[in-house]
């Protein structure tokens, strides 16, 4: 019906594990990929933040297991957010690869192509006494594919190698070399031609990459610390006040109107409408999402309209349509009790 709706069943049936992974990364409520995953601290079930908060505003129980659940039991799950992000990024590519040639996926072919190159290279290095001097490195780089368009800033390369375009290639090669030599498990220590530090032979090339890119030996941890310091400051300024629960019954209409105005929400209509609007807004704690509130209001105020649309006329037509199909439907019934339907006690 709609090609932009991705579903776990997009994966070929023979890749059941991928179907399952796809399914697991989805919210059980909206069936989309989890958006700001929140896990219940009690039962561990995970939902989109917005979906589960919307549910909990109606009923304080887990939508999956019906156990008692309140908003304070929810915990963010950053690992799942990252998993969803990377899975979504690779999904199209992986799906294309699998559906094009499921017998021999492309990544495996790449791996085969690389391996012989790794072995020749490491054997050469063994002959040189396992010491990749700057000269040896640049020789290797010269031999590497120079057609690569990617390049690091020329200044950092030029200091050591004088040739810039191949510096990205070294990353690729070294990852492969790393795998090749770690298979042999020879923990020989060598000194870095750039900074002189003693490094394991198997990691010298990735270490060298970092040196060449102008970073120090522990660049990641420093970046991490810096980002941790700055991020809360930058986002904190634009953050709205945290939504609070209101005891609507204790508020007069004018007080509620004032609260809504202060929050920047439309404050029209009677108390009942404003209450509905505020409780819908509560799970949405971002200014950008305020416009979703308008969309919600224009649709949610219409249930009556949709119901009248879907009244007798539609139902009659629906019935007559089914009756037309009844002849095709009249065939032996297959054994059809599902394994796990939702409980059906009355």
């Amino acid at each position: 019906m709609d090609t932009d709706i991705e579903d776990p069943t997009d994966w070929p049936a023979e890749f059941a594990h991928l179907r399952e992974t796809d399914q697991l990364l989805r919210c059980p409520i909206c069936k989309e990929y989890l958006d700001t995953a929140m896990a219940s601290a009690n039962c561990g079930h995970t939902f989109c933040s917005l979906c589960v908060r919307r549910c909990l505003s109606q009923k304080t129980q887990c939508p999956m297991c019906h156990d008692q659940l309140t908003e304070s039991d929810l915990q963010p799950s950053r690992l799942i957010d990252s998993l969803v992000k990377s899975f979504k990024q690779g999904r199209r590519q992986l799906l294309d690869t699998l559906t094009r040639n499921p017998q021999s996926p492309a990544p495996a072919q790449n791996g085969h192509r690389k391996r012989p190159r790794i072995q020749t290279r490491s054997s050469t290095r063994t002959a040189e006494g396992m010491l990749p001097t700057p000269q040896a490195t640049s020789d290797r780089l010269a031999a590497a594919d120079l057609s690569s368009d990617n390049e690091l800033p020329a200044a950092t390369d030029g200091e050591y190698l004088g040739s810039s375009p191949s510096s990205v290639q070294i990353i690729d090669d070294d990852d492969a070399t790393l795998r090749g030599s770690s298979r042999r498990a020879k923990p020989t220590m060598v000194s870095c031609p750039s900074c002189g530090a003693k490094v394991r032979e198997s990691t010298i090339n990735s270490h060298l990459n970092r040196c060449l890119a102008g970073k120090t030996t522990e660049p990641d941890s420093k970046n991490f610390l810096r980002s941790r310091r700055t991020v809360p400051l930058s986002t904190g300024a634009s953050r709205l006040p945290k939504p609070t629960k209101l005891a609507y019954k204790l508020l007069t209409e004018s007080k509620l109107r004032k609260v809504l105005k202060e929050l920047g929400i439309r404050a029209t209509g009677d108390k009942h409408q404003m209450q509905a609007r505020h409780s819908e807004w509560s799970p949405v704690s971002d200014r950008q999402l305020l416009k979703r509130l308008d969309v919600w209001e224009s649709t949610a105020s219409k249930p009556d309209a949709t119901k009248t649309l879907a009244t007798q006329r539609d139902v009659d037509r629906a019935c007559s349509q089914i009756c037309q199909h009844a002849s095709t439907a009249r065939r032996p019934v297959v054994a059809s009790i599902p394994e796990s339907p939702p409980s059906s006690q009355v």
Partner: peptide
């Protein structure tokens, strides 16, 4: 045959 009616 059944008819299911949804709203927003």
């Amino acid at each position: 045959k059944l008819v299911l009616t949804f709203d927003e």
